[in-house]
Amino acid sequence: LRGKKKEELLKQLDDLKVELSQLRVAKVTGGAASKLSKIRVVRKSIARVLTVINQ
Score class of each variant (00 low, 15 high):
14 D>C: 13
33 A>Q: 04
19 E>L: 14
49 V>E: 00
54 N>S: 09
20 L>W: 10
22 Q>N: 11
4 K>R: 05
5 K>M: 15
41 V>Y: 08
12 Q>T: 14
11 K>M: 02
45 S>W: 14
31 G>M: 13
48 R>W: 07
45 S>V: 09
7 E>D: 08
32 A>S: 08
45 S>T: 08
34 S>M: 09
46 I>D: 00
2 R>P: 03
34 S>T: 11
3 G>F: 14
35 K>A: 13
4 K>D: 01
21 S>A: 09
31 G>R: 14
25 V>Y: 04
17 K>Y: 07
40 R>D: 03
12 Q>P: 04
36 L>M: 07
29 T>P: 07
29 T>S: 05
39 I>L: 13
51 T>M: 09
53 I>K: 00
30 G>S: 13
2 R>K: 15
13 L>Q: 02
37 S>H: 07
8 E>D: 11
14 D>V: 11
34 S>V: 07
26 A>Y: 05
16 L>K: 05
52 V>W: 12
7 E>S: 11
9 L>S: 03
34 S>N: 11
9 L>R: 02
17 K>F: 07
18 V>L: 10
6 K>T: 05
9 L>P: 05
50 L>G: 02
10 L>D: 03
13 L>T: 03
4 K>G: 04
17 K>T: 07
35 K>F: 15
18 V>H: 14
10 L>F: 10
46 I>M: 04
36 L>S: 02
30 G>P: 06
19 E>N: 13
36 L>W: 07
51 T>V: 06
28 V>Q: 02
14 D>R: 15
36 L>H: 02
10 L>V: 05
50 L>Q: 01
22 Q>D: 01
2 R>A: 06
46 I>T: 00
45 S>E: 03
20 L>Q: 03
12 Q>F: 15
27 K>N: 07
7 E>I: 12
9 L>D: 05
39 I>F: 09
45 S>N: 07
32 A>F: 15
37 S>Q: 09
52 V>G: 09
54 N>K: 13
39 I>N: 00
15 D>R: 15
47 A>Y: 04
36 L>G: 02
10 L>Q: 04
7 E>Q: 14
42 V>N: 01
35 K>C: 14
13 L>A: 03
17 K>G: 04
21 S>H: 02
5 K>Y: 15
17 K>R: 08
8 E>W: 15
27 K>L: 09
10 L>R: 07
2 R>S: 05
35 K>G: 08
10 L>Y: 05
44 K>R: 11
23 L>G: 04
49 V>S: 01
9 L>A: 04
26 A>W: 14
29 T>Q: 02
43 R>A: 08
6 K>Y: 05
28 V>D: 06
29 T>I: 15
49 V>I: 10
6 K>D: 00
9 L>F: 11
12 Q>V: 14
1 L>C: 06
25 V>N: 07
38 K>Q: 04
40 R>T: 07
1 L>A: 03
54 N>A: 06
10 L>G: 03
38 K>G: 07
4 K>W: 15
24 R>F: 00
29 T>D: 02
39 I>A: 04
30 G>N: 05
21 S>C: 10
28 V>W: 10
39 I>D: 00
34 S>W: 08
51 T>P: 00
22 Q>K: 09
51 T>H: 08
15 D>S: 12
40 R>M: 13
49 V>R: 00
22 Q>T: 10
24 R>V: 05
18 V>I: 13
19 E>S: 14
4 K>V: 08
35 K>E: 02
39 I>Y: 03
21 S>R: 08
49 V>Y: 08
17 K>A: 05
42 V>L: 08
17 K>S: 05
3 G>W: 13
44 K>H: 05
41 V>T: 08
9 L>V: 09
33 A>E: 04
5 K>R: 09
30 G>Q: 11
8 E>C: 10
21 S>G: 08
47 A>Q: 12
52 V>K: 15
6 K>F: 12
26 A>D: 03
30 G>F: 14
19 E>W: 15
31 G>I: 12
41 V>A: 09
8 E>Y: 13
41 V>G: 12
19 E>A: 15
18 V>Q: 08
34 S>G: 08
24 R>Q: 15
35 K>R: 08
52 V>D: 05
20 L>I: 08
6 K>M: 12
54 N>G: 13
27 K>R: 09
16 L>S: 07
28 V>R: 05
7 E>V: 09
43 R>L: 08
35 K>P: 05
42 V>C: 03
3 G>R: 08
33 A>K: 11
40 R>A: 09
31 G>A: 12
54 N>D: 02
15 D>V: 11
18 V>P: 03
32 A>H: 01
5 K>N: 07
52 V>A: 08
23 L>P: 06
43 R>Q: 08
11 K>R: 05
38 K>H: 04
39 I>S: 01
14 D>P: 05
25 V>C: 10
19 E>P: 05
48 R>P: 00
32 A>W: 13
45 S>Q: 10
21 S>K: 08
38 K>V: 04
17 K>W: 12
16 L>N: 02
27 K>C: 05
15 D>G: 11
33 A>P: 01
52 V>E: 04
12 Q>L: 14
21 S>W: 04
3 G>Y: 07
12 Q>G: 09
53 I>V: 07
19 E>C: 14
17 K>V: 10
21 S>Q: 07
51 T>L: 07
20 L>R: 03
18 V>F: 11
55 Q>A: 04
29 T>L: 15
2 R>Y: 09
3 G>I: 12
44 K>C: 02
43 R>N: 04
49 V>K: 00
41 V>I: 10
18 V>S: 10
46 I>A: 02
8 E>F: 11
38 K>M: 06
43 R>E: 01
21 S>I: 02
14 D>L: 13
31 G>T: 12
34 S>P: 03
11 K>I: 01
9 L>M: 13
28 V>G: 04
53 I>G: 00
50 L>N: 00
47 A>D: 04
7 E>A: 15
22 Q>E: 06
34 S>D: 11
27 K>Y: 02
39 I>E: 01
48 R>M: 01
9 L>N: 02
41 V>F: 10
48 R>D: 01
20 L>N: 03
48 R>N: 07
45 S>M: 09
27 K>D: 00
38 K>Y: 05
53 I>N: 00
11 K>H: 05
2 R>T: 11
29 T>C: 15
45 S>H: 13
4 K>N: 06
41 V>H: 09
28 V>P: 01
9 L>G: 03
21 S>P: 05
15 D>E: 13
33 A>D: 01
28 V>M: 13
45 S>R: 09
55 Q>K: 15
14 D>F: 12
8 E>V: 10
52 V>L: 09
47 A>R: 14
55 Q>M: 09
22 Q>P: 05
55 Q>N: 12
5 K>Q: 01
31 G>S: 14
8 E>M: 15
47 A>F: 04
6 K>E: 01
14 D>Q: 15
15 D>K: 14
45 S>I: 11
32 A>D: 01
27 K>F: 03
40 R>L: 12
3 G>L: 09
40 R>F: 09
48 R>G: 05
6 K>Q: 05
44 K>D: 06
46 I>Y: 00
11 K>F: 01
6 K>L: 13
16 L>I: 03
27 K>P: 02
26 A>R: 09
22 Q>S: 06
46 I>S: 00
37 S>T: 11
32 A>L: 15
27 K>E: 09
36 L>K: 03
45 S>L: 11
2 R>Q: 06
42 V>T: 08
23 L>M: 09
42 V>R: 00
32 A>K: 03
11 K>Y: 00
5 K>D: 01
30 G>K: 14
36 L>T: 01
33 A>H: 02
50 L>Y: 07
27 K>H: 04
8 E>R: 15
6 K>V: 10
46 I>N: 00
13 L>E: 04
42 V>Q: 00
11 K>A: 04
2 R>G: 09
14 D>N: 14
